[in-house]
């Protein structure tokens, strides 16, 4: 039993994040988002609402986007987690990261990691979305800065970068014009 004056039992939690195994000792109630951010110092994952609506904390659990604020660290043991840090580096950005940078898909950058994880997983399953599909794909994440237009563009651009054999020199495209496909 726990009570107001009894220290909580701790659990040793070992998880695999971005291919690296990490171990930390935490109480059962530690949210996975807090575990990643504060116990493992992987602060790329952000927390915007802690009730599952905003999507800023979205990470990939076995490749599927999930809200890390709606899981406990102790539940992550058997899973392979991917955070934004695992999708590329400054010198070797992943296609979605590169597309966000090219298309001005971010402003303050706080919600961005949640979008990048979400879009990365989406493009795995839908490598060539239309503008409307791209908009739909990001409709579970809130952004207060961009008005989403350049994020839609980034999804389309990321699809092109992925499709291009040579990631270094992708063909110039008109993601800009295509982003306008959506309205009737």
């Amino acid at each position: 039993m726990t009570g107001p004056d009894v220290p909580e039992p701790l659990h040793e939690v070992t998880v695999s994040v971005n291919g690296v195994r990490h171990t930390a000792t935490v109480p059962a109630r530690r949210l996975l988002s807090d575990f990643l951010r504060h116990d493992l110092a992987l602060t790329g994952t952000h927390v915007g609402c802690e009730h599952g609506v905003c999507g800023a904390c979205t990470i990939l659990v076995d490749g599927a986007p999930m809200r890390s604020c709606l899981m406990f660290a102790v539940q992550a043991r058997a899973h392979e987690l991917t955070t934004v840090e695992g999708l590329g580096t400054i010198d070797a950005m992943g296609p979605v990261q590169q597309a966000f940078s090219e298309c001005h898909g971010l402003q303050c950058g706080f919600c961005t990691p949640g979008f990048i994880t979400t879009i990365t997983a989406y493009l795995e399953e839908n490598p060539d979305p239309t503008a409307e599909e791209a908009r739909d794909a990001i409709s579970g994440n809130l952004c207060r800065c961009t008005g989403y237009q350049n994020i839609v563009k980034s999804v389309l651009r990321a699809a092109e970068i992925r499709a291009s054999a040579d990631l270094g020199a992708p063909p110039l495209i008109d993601a800009d014009a295509r982003a306008g496909e959506a309205p009737p």
Binding site: L42, T43, G44, T45, H46, T83, V84, E85, L87, G88, T89, I90, M93, Q97, F100, S101, L106, G109, F110, T112, P113, I116
Partner: peptide
Amino acid sequence: DPRLVTGGG
């Protein structure tokens, strides 16, 4: 952006 899109914010 390179910093912000790779989790370096």
